[in-house]
């Protein structure tokens, strides 16, 4: 039989807590599966697939979110259906990496910023209409390289800007950028200790007030989705590196 896995948890011995949701996707019952020192919230499933619907995705998020105040969790990505044996093998095999991940996110939540950042329009040479295939290829590569450099520079600038105000409140940070010619849409994920949530929110409001050129949306607290994954060791799976 396969199980649908929601999240790994630590220090949770029972689901008999008032705020812990005990129904998962499609109303399935949720149980706590103990593996080594960890717990895994799972639902038993009869099939290998399930519908990708708004409701099932929300149910996954709600279940994982319901333990947020109780314990530290490492959420599984939506759609993780696996045999109990495979799940036990995974947890046992990657126990050191999972412990490291737990240590990293313990006591923390994820706070997300979506930022629209208006930037000065850069001068770009007009595109030549007629190019041979070789020239066009090299020109495309050149643009890609310049784009990569620009993204790295923008990412560093944004990170420095945010760390000036939020630096002492964040344990870790991830930034993803989607630049256009005149603006950058940035998704920023911060790992923040629970005790610092209110200060973090206040600091973000200060940034909003001081930087009207930045349009900032704040959401959270979330379980640490963006900081949960572990590096899988290719060698351990296939015997080659």
């Amino acid at each position: 039989m396969k199980v649908y896995a929601y999240c790994l948890v630590e220090g949770l011995d029972t689901l008999d807590a008032p705020d812990v949701q005990v129904r998962g996707i499609e109303g399935a019952a949720v149980r706590l599966l103990k593996i080594d020192d960890f717990g895994v919230l799972v639902s038993d499933g009869e099939s290998d697939a399930f519908p990708l619907t708004k409701e099932s995705a929300i149910a996954h998020a709600a279940l994982v979110g319901s333990v947020l105040d109780k314990t530290t969790s490492l959420p599984f990505r939506f759609g993780t259906i696996i045999s109990e044996q495979q799940l036990r093998h995974y947890v046992t095999t990657y126990k050191p990496a999972l412990e490291k991940s737990f240590a990293h996110v313990r006591g923390c939540v994820e706070m997300d910023l979506k930022i629209i950042w208006q930037i000065a329009k850069t001068d770009q040479p007009p595109e030549k209409e007629e190019q041979g295939p070789g020239t066009a290829f090299l020109e495309k590569k050149r643009r890609e390289l310049l784009g990569d450099e620009r993204q790295a520079a923008l990412k560093a600038e944004l990170s420095n800007l945010l760390r000036k105000d939020l630096g002492d409140l964040i344990r870790d940070e991830q930034i993803a950028l989607r630049p256009s010619k005149t603006a950058v849409l940035a998704a920023v994920f911060h790992l923040v200790e629970r005790a610092n949530i209110r200060r973090y929110q206040e600091k973000v409001q200060e940034i909003r007030n001081n930087r009207p050129d930045l349009k900032i949306r704040l959401s959270g607290p979330w379980p640490p989705y963006s900081f949960a994954n572990i590096e899988l060791e290719f060698k351990s799976q296939f015997g080659v590196s």
Binding site: L8, F50, R77, G79, T80, I82, Y90, S226, N229
Partner: peptide, 17 residues
């Protein structure tokens, strides 16, 4: 969050769209 992030287990995932 639920579609793009979180722990990924090596293996097979089937999603029905």
């Amino acid at each position: 969050h639920v579609l793009n992030r979180g722990l990924v287990i090596a293996g097979e995932i089937t999603i029905s769209v």
